[in-house]
Nucleic acid binder design. Structure first.
Lengths: 107, 107
DNA sequence: CTAAAGTGCAACTTGCTGGTTGCGCATACT
DNA sequence: AGTATGCGCAACCAGCAAGTTGCACTTTAG
């Protein structure tokens, strides 16, 4: 069921640190834990844990290449989250309603 | 800053209980803490706390009428969250990119 | 006027979660 | 071969956040 997946997505995106990690990965296209940790005031393991959590939520995909593991964005779950938002808010907000229609066109 | 607001929104929606509260309020149009708590296995105060948190995030609006406080949905912050998602995922996902354009039209 | 309904505030408990440190293992460099 | 780099796992710590209980305050009802 999809509602379950949305749960994980929102939970994952709930943490500001994880959100900025998603942004960073999206900006670079691909990244490793040590790369990202270099620009952050936290340990590599902390970043690795968060990346792992994001991967569990389906937002990132991990690919091991040699001795490094590169992460890349998998934006499909974001669609589900967006769908939830426009579904809940669509009746109460004109712009969200418009997006809702725009989303349903493609179903 | 609006990114700050998005932070609060995602944090608020990160909790499954709060998300279902938002759904419940949206479904009823308007609701009070005791009303919602009646259908849940938690205390009224717990619900009240969550509603208060959602109100702080800007997702709900509280209106005191007599001895009861009714909450209603204010979906504007959802737009910001959607905007963040399509902005991050737009380059990697055709459907999100389409939504991004659809969103920018209205700016 | 008295009782009940509805709410808010505050203190306390508890489980989760993000972070750290300390390893051990695999892969690349020289 | 030997060293350095990168990663994952596990244990541990500290803070937060969700929930509960208890109480006081206001508004409606009888």
């Amino acid at each position: 069921m999809r509602g379950d997946r949305v749960d994980h997505v929102f939970a994952a995106l709930g943490d500001p640190g994880r959100r900025s990690l998603v942004e960073a990965v999206a900006a670079r296209g691909t990244a490793t834990a040590t790369e990202l940790a270099a620009d952050l005031p936290v340990t590599r393991q902390a970043v690795a844990k968060q990346l792992s959590a994001l991967a569990d939520a389906g937002l990132l995909r991990a690919t091991r290449a040699g001795r490094e593991t590169r992460y890349e964005l998998t934006p499909e779950p974001l669609e589900d989250a967006v769908a939830w938002m426009v579904e809940v808010g669509g009746r109460w907000d004109a712009r969200l309603a418009k997006l809702e229609r725009s989303l349903e066109e493609r179903r």
